[in-house]
């Protein structure tokens, strides 16, 4: 039962991601990005990462995409149909990306990973919370400061003189 769900989610993610990078109207791209993020959240559920699925929906779907849509609205004249959205190099880019993809797939399939024995689902929220407050407390505080500085920096950059 797990494999069909994986393939459906994978199809949603790949098709919507292709639309994100190729659609003419940048606003439609932003809407497709929401669909792609929802697909990734579903994928996290199949990987038994319940907390990360919730975080994905809250932060990516709720915050980052809305921020993107705000930016599209503020730079509105570029959402018109006639503006060319891709540059002149899609074919060389596609060739390079295709060779990179083949390289990645070959190296993934040829590497033997040591799969753990215990693949049973378990609740993750408690473990993650404890790890943040004990083992990873210093990176946690540093990343909080990074986020704060970035948000203040964003306000300073975008503010009118």
């Amino acid at each position: 039962m797990e494999l069909p769900i994986f393939y459906i989610l994978a199809a949603i993610i790949i098709v919507s991601a292709l639309f994100v990078v190729t659609l003419r109207n940048i606003f439609h791209s932003a809407l497709m990005l929401i669909l792609c993020f929802f697909g990734v959240a579903g994928l996290y559920v199949t990987l038994h990462a319940d907390f990360l699925a919730a975080v994905q929906v809250l932060i990516y779907v709720g915050a980052v995409t809305i921020l993107m849509i705000f930016a599209v609205m503020l730079t509105q004249q570029l959402t018109g149909r006639k503006i060319q959205q891709l540059n002149d190099q899609p074919l060389p880019a596609a060739l390079i990306i295709l060779s990179l993809l083949i390289l990645l797939i070959v190296s993934i399939t040829r590497t033997g990973f040591e799969i753990a024995d215990n693949l049973e689902p378990m609740p993750t929220v408690g473990t993650i919370g404890k790890a943040f407050m004990t083992t990873y407390v210093l990176p946690f505080e540093i990343v909080s400061v990074v986020l704060l500085v970035a948000l203040i920096g964003a306000i300073v950059i975008a503010r009118r003189e």
Binding site: L18, V21, I26, L78, Q85, P90, I97, L98, L101, L104
Partner: peptide, 19 residues
């Protein structure tokens, strides 16, 4: 890997900074 490659394709070909 497929998603990453689609992302790089967009990065290389989009003209719009938001894209």
């Amino acid at each position: 890997a497929i998603l990453f490659c689609i992302g790089i394709f967009g990065l290389l070909t989009r003209r719009n900074a938001i894209g």
